[in-house]
């Protein structure tokens, strides 16, 4: 599933005029968001959306897990990885839902 989502993200980003370096960052971010939701989301269904904005591409991953372990140390690594490839990222969670988002900036060229 990770590969399918990476390919989908690549397609969206390519159509939006992102560079291959930016697309590489997007693919890492997609994998990271997915990994966090799969590993800490108790096997609940995951919804992933890509949103192209003027400043970049946003990745939104949502899980309907009853209990999302937001304090797990591995999420600190997730955060560090996302911070290294994204301009902004974050996690919001409450009973019954978790939302991880990340934004990779796009520098428009000629």
């Amino acid at each position: 599933m990770s590969r399918v989502l990476r390919l989908a993200a690549s397609g969206v980003a390519s159509l939006a005029g992102f560079s291959v370096d930016e697309i590489e960052d997007i693919k890492v971010a997609v994998s990271e968001v997915l990994l966090a939701l799969v590993e800490h989301g108790e096997g609940a269904a995951i919804d992933v959306r890509f949103v192209v904005t003027e400043s970049g591409l946003e990745i939104h991953g949502r899980s309907a897990a009853e209990h999302f372990d937001a304090q797990h140390p591995d999420l600190a690594v997730c955060s560090t990885v996302l911070a290294s490839v994204c301009t902004e990222h974050g996690l919001e969670h409450q009973e019954g839902s978790a939302h991880i988002w990340a934004m990779v900036a796009h520098v428009a060229v000629g």
């Binding site: 397609g11 005029g17 992102f18 560079s19």
Partner: peptide, 18 residues
Amino acid sequence: ERSPRVDEIADRLNVPVD
């Protein structure tokens, strides 16, 4: 002098973007 876009690579290689 920047990272190319996918379509630029595709154009030069004369293959589809996909």
